[in-house]
Design a protein around this nucleic acid. Structure first.
Lengths: 197, 197
DNA sequence: GTATTAACTGACTAGACAGTCAGTATTGCA
DNA sequence: TGCAATACTGACTGTCTAGTCAGTTAATAC
């Protein structure tokens, strides 16, 4: 029974804190004490706070890409349209069971760091490319099988991502409980892309 | 020629800084020096940093509500559908000429503060209510004149807001230049809500 | 002109926080 | 067992920042 290494434990704690309170408002001491170690230990495993953040992001990236690839390995769809709706529903589902991942990705610091830190930028690009390609692929398949109308798959994929992301954000800012919007969102997307000859 | 009061000048500087770098990463000294005054002066006009933030938000709220009400005073639309698309286009337009407003509204701190600061929450609610009602009203009008299909106006208004907001965010994170998505977004929204009997 | 209030400032404080470092404990292995 | 490397720690430092305060300057009122 190989117990979780401290390095992994640090990353797990940091994921929750960075996602929930942001980079600047999370102190290394806090990460340490919640992990059950002493502050200086983190600096043995990670040279700087920024390096810890990038490791956290890398971890999220890996988890996210894996989750989606697993989903598409297991699910099969009668049409491109159904595949798209399935992807959207799974995206929403994942954003509920792995809130931290999506909060972290939406943190401003993540994007600001990506502008100056190549490693950070690479991870972020992998994530976004993955998310967009999922939608785009479904759209392409749907155009081939006739379930999806004639539209720019690339642009539409971006719009759908923005839409899903916007809904997740509405919910996380809980001004309105967006949860009740899920089925309406799927219906809206269907109307938006389906082929109505 | 009544020159801009220092209090207003502080708010203007703070708007740009809070929007651009976030609350925590903006220091009062920085706000002061960019305004051309000394640090302590801010604390004469605003008791705390948080109070300054709320004033900034109030200012944004006022500007935003005014901008939209002016737009609808001047524009007139042949149908509810066109009114909706006009509102979306103007929303996107405004997010370009008043980037700070929208950045500030999307900052996490804004929403975190709203959870504990009633004044902040009130301003934020006014903003969101205004934005949603604009879309909802257009949808209701459109259902009356037959240009918009049978759908929940409230939920659809929320979805459209999430969509527009998501696009603005995509652009501000400039992973993709979302600017080219504007016309596609309008077309998508049209397909999503129009009445196709 | 003088009194009163409002606007402003320089010098300071107390706390927080990232990161260092010299040294101690723990592990793996010969 | 002993040796070497790896993992970990306590005590510390320099810097940054929100907020204070006693006092100065500017505006207004009479």
């Amino acid at each position: 029974m190989p117990k979780k290494s401290k390095k992994t434990a640090i990353i797990d704690t940091a994921t929750i804190l960075f996602a929930g309170k942001g980079f600047t408002n999370t102190s290394m001491t806090e990460v340490a004490s919640l992990t059950g170690i002493v502050g200086a230990t983190i600096f043995y495993h990670f040279k700087t706070k920024e390096e810890l953040f990038v490791s956290v992001l890398e971890n999220v990236k890996t988890g996210l890409v894996q989750a989606f690839s697993l989903y598409f390995q297991e699910e099969h769809f009668p049409s491109g349209l159904e595949r798209l709706l399935g992807a959207i529903a799974y995206h929403l589902h994942l954003s509920e069971i792995k809130k931290e991942w999506f909060h972290l990705l939406r943190r401003h610091y993540t994007h600001e760091l990506a502008a100056v830190n190549p490693a950070c930028r690479r991870h972020l690009e992998v994530v976004y490319t993955c998310l967009i390609e999922i939608f785009e692929r479904a759209l392409v398949i749907g155009q081939e099988d006739g379930s999806i109308g004639p539209l720019s798959t690339k642009k539409t994929a971006l719009i759908i991502l923005a839409m899903v992301d916007g809904i997740i954000q509405l919910e996380s800012n809980n001004l309105y409980n967006a949860g009740t919007l899920y089925s309406e969102l799927l219906a809206s997307c269907r109307r938006m892309v389906e082929n109505k000859q």
